[in-house]
Simulated assay, not measured.
Amino acid sequence: MNLFSTENPQDDNLLPYDGVVNYFGTVFKKEEADFYLQKLLTTIEWRNDEAIIFGKLITTKRKVAWYAEQPFEYTYSKITKRALPFTKELAELKTITENLTGETYNSCLLNLYHDGNEGMAWHSDDEKDLKKNGAIGSLSFGATRKFAFKHKQTKETVSVVLEHGSLLVMKDTTQTHWLHRLPPTKTVNSPRVNLTFRTIVR
């Protein structure tokens, strides 16, 4: 099955129902993607992520960072983060993502996966701080990784390969009906940086 058979692949919905996910493919030239990857690795204030699971504080190998137009607080996994101001490169990438998707964003959650051993379990980005049914623009830099979706009721799964310098957008009722994850893999030994541009509501 060819998911990308039309002239504009970003118009194709990867999900069969109950949400909209558009994959734009690579939106940066390799030189541009390489530039942003290095800037993100060296200028972002990375921290090991924390979560409270079954009452215990868990610290992950994966690192995260939280940036926004205002010092928004964002709570997930029972941990609250306060946003740092956008860096020059993050502001540039936000504008590019907004122009490509036709959406607006005011914040960005970044994840750094050092290699394929690090991933993300099934979850939805449906925290109360986020705009309900709002768009999430996801940029990927670095290692190519598989990204998967699973319907909460039917358990149907859909996956896509996210390339260096690529853009994926999740919107409408996707977070209500679908889980997503980044499965670990033993075939990747280089880092990946993922930026998810979001809209925080007061």
Results as ranks from 00 to 15, higher is better:
K78S: 11
E89W: 10
L84A: 14
R62N: 01
T59L: 08
K94M: 08
T60L: 11
R82M: 14
T101D: 00
K63F: 11
I96M: 00
L90H: 01
I58A: 09
W66K: 02
T101C: 00
A68D: 04
F86C: 07
T95Y: 13
Y74W: 10
F86P: 06
K63S: 13
L57K: 12
K88H: 15
F86W: 09
Y76P: 02
I79N: 05
E73R: 13
S77A: 10
R82Y: 12
K88F: 14
T75C: 06
L57Y: 09
K88G: 09
L57Q: 09
E89K: 10
Y67D: 01
T95K: 14
W66Y: 10
Y76D: 04
T60N: 13
L84Q: 15
Y67P: 02
A91C: 07
T75L: 01
T95S: 14
E92H: 12
L93A: 00
E69D: 13
K56A: 07
T97P: 06
L100G: 02
K81L: 15
Y74F: 12
T59R: 13
K61Q: 13
I79S: 05
L90S: 03
L90G: 02
E98Y: 02
T60V: 09
L84P: 14
I79W: 04
E89I: 08
K94C: 07
E73C: 10
T95V: 13
A91R: 14
A83H: 03
K56I: 07
I58G: 08
Y67G: 01
I79K: 05
K56E: 10
A68T: 05
T60C: 08
A68E: 05
Y74M: 07
E98W: 02
K56R: 11
T60E: 12
T60K: 15
T87M: 05
A83S: 04
L100H: 05
K81P: 06
T87L: 06
N99S: 08
Q70L: 11
T97K: 03
R82I: 14
Y67S: 01
T80L: 04
K81N: 15
A68W: 04
K63H: 11
K56M: 06
E69F: 08
K78D: 13
T87Q: 04
R82K: 15
Y76W: 06
Y76C: 04
T87F: 06
F72M: 07
S77E: 06
L84I: 13
